[in-house]
Nucleic acid binder design. Sequence first.
DNA 1: CCTTGACCTTGACGTAACGTCAACCTCTAC
DNA 2: GTAGAGGTTGACGTTACGTCAAGGTCAAGG
Lengths: 252, 252
Amino acid sequence: MDWSIQEIAKIAGTTSRTLRHYDDIGLLKPSRTGHNGYRYYDGPALVQLQRILLLRELGLGLPAITEVLDRETDTVKALSSHLEWLAQEQDRLTRQIASVRQTIDTMKGDGKYMAHNMFDGFDHTQYKDEVEERWGKDAYAASDSWWRGMHAEEKQQWKDRVQKLGADWISAADSGVSPDSAEAQDLARRHVEWLSGIPGTPTAAPGGDVKGYVTGLGEMYVADPRFAANYGGESGATFVRDALRVYAEKNL
Amino acid sequence: MDWSIQEIAKIAGTTSRTLRHYDDIGLLKPSRTGHNGYRYYDGPALVQLQRILLLRELGLGLPAITEVLDRETDTVKALSSHLEWLAQEQDRLTRQIASVRQTIDTMKGDGKYMAHNMFDGFDHTQYKDEVEERWGKDAYAASDSWWRGMHAEEKQQWKDRVQKLGADWISAADSGVSPDSAEAQDLARRHVEWLSGIPGTPTAAPGGDVKGYVTGLGEMYVADPRFAANYGGESGATFVRDALRVYAEKNL
DNA sequence: CCTTGACCTTGACGTAACGTCAACCTCTAC
DNA sequence: GTAGAGGTTGACGTTACGTCAAGGTCAAGG
């Protein structure tokens, strides 16, 4: 008693294409082949097939399954190492989900903060439309008037300061010192001081969450590549973020 | 100021091949192309690239990234729907891990139980080597002596009973009734009664975890296709498992 | 005998995002 | 002139089949 290819496919809950594939890769050969080339499968073949499908559902790759069935590799052993891989994947996914959440929060975040952050080392007029679109006309207008209110020299000074700070961050990151080193922490102090010059920045006054602001800012440097680019790319931004986090924990 | 393909690759932390790929699929075109075909990238291109790499790290597909960058699709929206997908994946992984654990436990499980279970509808002599290998010579010998101790008629009766039970399970499963229906529960009762005839089966006596035994058995019917085949394949085995679980909960 | 439809076969492309040759051109330095 | 480093365009390989495409085979009916 044997079955045609479609029959076992139905019985086992798979497709004929899959069976042909398994035949091609030598995972499951038909028990008999008609003179016309038709594939026929018997009971033991069905049992094998169901083993295969079970292992596949558990996420094993076909090569691994082949090994288990052919070379008498211990099924438990194969599943155990597979389990490790699954655990790693789960871990990676968990972290990725956290990152995505963080990024989303940062992007649609407070708005007040973001609008100011947009000035971080950029010619903000370049981003007018985008700032308006993302954080509203008011946020843009407020910061814009602050900026416009400056004299040319002040503007230049500001830009120079930004540039110097960015350059120092990059060289510090490149030098390989750790984010909690004295050097990095001094940069963090300068960074926070500089931030305080932007209107709207929270202060140590009651209700001002300076600490949250600074750490959130750090996250954003990493999340948004336009900021990251100003700190030497993602690795640099990561360094800045870590340094700011340490600084905020200790001093704010 | 612009960079060659390897230069930005290094700056952004990726490879030149990737950049060529992005060029091919239209995700990121070089800002300039030399007369010799060389690709050159400028600052804005770098920023774009870093955006792309960020989104990619978050797990977005290149088509999705293209859509975000090209068609002004809202990044937050794209990330949000991506987050849903990630959550689903995480869920799937979690369930798969549980299944693999279950299967591993079942396979290397108690041994005592497994050895007996091997008789479940099979000519156990057919599996002598495997039983010995997986659960030890003692387990096999014990069950074997029980089986050998039977008269031919007894053996035949036993086999008939097994066959009848299996057939009834299959027809019940096919009939579409639910596992907690009276019919299925009556089959479960017969199943447990039948099991009690096998030496080594736990009893209601102190220390005998009949409930755990029966539910574990059900899991194994699903996990091992050789058993599943006796109950009409995986769907049938699933039905048996569910029915046994309900029965065990209520009566054991 | 011929047709029709259901079922079978092999062959081959497509999928995601590049890694990895292969064959060949270009630029800089000695 | 010639390395040697770097650039270019193909094109195959990767996972597990889905999905045509083109063409035999088989049972039933006219």
